[in-house]
């Protein structure tokens, strides 16, 4: 099969994003250098994307912001996928009142629409990267739990599981070796969309002033800071917004491709920002 542009192009965008994020500490960047004569300077050879309201180079801040987005995106997905899968798998496998209680807990968390609970949590815990990851993970685990539970429920009566149980395998071994590997495909697809969701959510929280602390850079807080100068310096808002758009679009396209490839029907898919 020839490589398709609809996969190659997004993969390239995500690759560049990851590269920028990982390389940022070693690049000669000056994201916090305040340069008053260059306040709101338009793009120029010296600063490709211009300077912000404190004369800081926008491109440098964009690259450091890529790091924030990557850290939060993958951090949140790692924590919530791990915790959610574990809880969902236990609920589905053990069943009985454990399942009943866990399903109610999941329902309660699902009752908070969209990013609302994360906003409240981030607001109450106070700003900072760690609190953003906590807030988004507290909201994020539910999707994986629900998915893992459904998968385990549909798999646990299969012959190979019954055979393993008959051979005396314990519940931990059955879950880890016989059930979870089969339940993985939809969870991986969900996690892919989850990275995009976390990137938008982090930027959203930072836009609301509930994310990273200044002077640390986040694409969301760059938009927040730039909004007031839109008429004189639209480049402050355009750069970070395009960065979010491209990264989220690319991840969602990869998620779609992965879903088709793994032939997953149940996954929730992308959610609007």
């Amino acid at each position: 099969m020839t490589p398709r542009w609809s996969v190659l192009l997004p993969a390239l965008v995500v690759g560049l994003w990851a590269l920028a994020a990982l390389a940022a500490p070693w690049l000669p960047l000056a994201p916090d250098r305040i340069d008053l004569p260059r306040i709101l300077a338009p793009p120029s050879p010296a600063a490709w994307l211009g300077c912000d309201d404190l004369g800081r180079p926008v491109l440098d801040r964009l690259l450091v912001g890529a790091r924030t987005a990557l850290l939060v995106g993958f951090g949140v997905v790692a924590v919530s996928a791990l915790v959610g899968t574990l809880i969902g798998a236990v609920a589905g496998y053990v069943g009985g009142w454990v399942d009943l209680v866990l399903v109610r807990v999941i329902d309660v968390f699902l009752a908070f629409p969209g990013i609302l609970l994360a906003i409240a949590l981030a607001g109450i815990l106070g700003p900072g990267l760690g609190n953003v990851v906590i807030a988004l993970s507290v909201v994020g685990w539910v999707g994986y739990a629900r998915l893992a539970r459904a998968q385990i429920l549909s798999l646990k009566q299969r012959d190979h599981v019954l055979a393993a149980r008959a051979l005396g395998a314990g519940p931990v071994r059955i879950l880890a070796r016989h059930l979870l590997p089969l339940a993985l495909a939809p969870l991986i697809v969900e996690a892919t969309f989850g990275v995009a969701g976390a990137v938008i959510a982090e930027a959203g929280l930072s836009f609301l002033g509930l994310g990273v602390q200044p002077p640390a850079a986040s694409w969301g807080s760059m938009i927040r800071d730039g909004v007031g100068y839109m008429l004189v310096a639209p480049h402050l808002v355009l750069g970070p917004g395009l960065a979010i758009l491209l990264v989220v679009l690319a991840i969602n396209l990869l998620g779609d491709a992965l879903r088709d490839r793994l032939d997953v029907r149940g996954a929730r898919g992308a959610e609007p920002g």
Partner: peptide, 16 residues
């Protein structure tokens, strides 16, 4: 595109 565009970016652009 509509799914990927964050509303805290679309909003300011529309205002502009």
């Amino acid at each position: 595109l509509g799914i990927a565009i964050p509303n805290f970016w679309l909003g300011p652009l529309l205002i502009l």
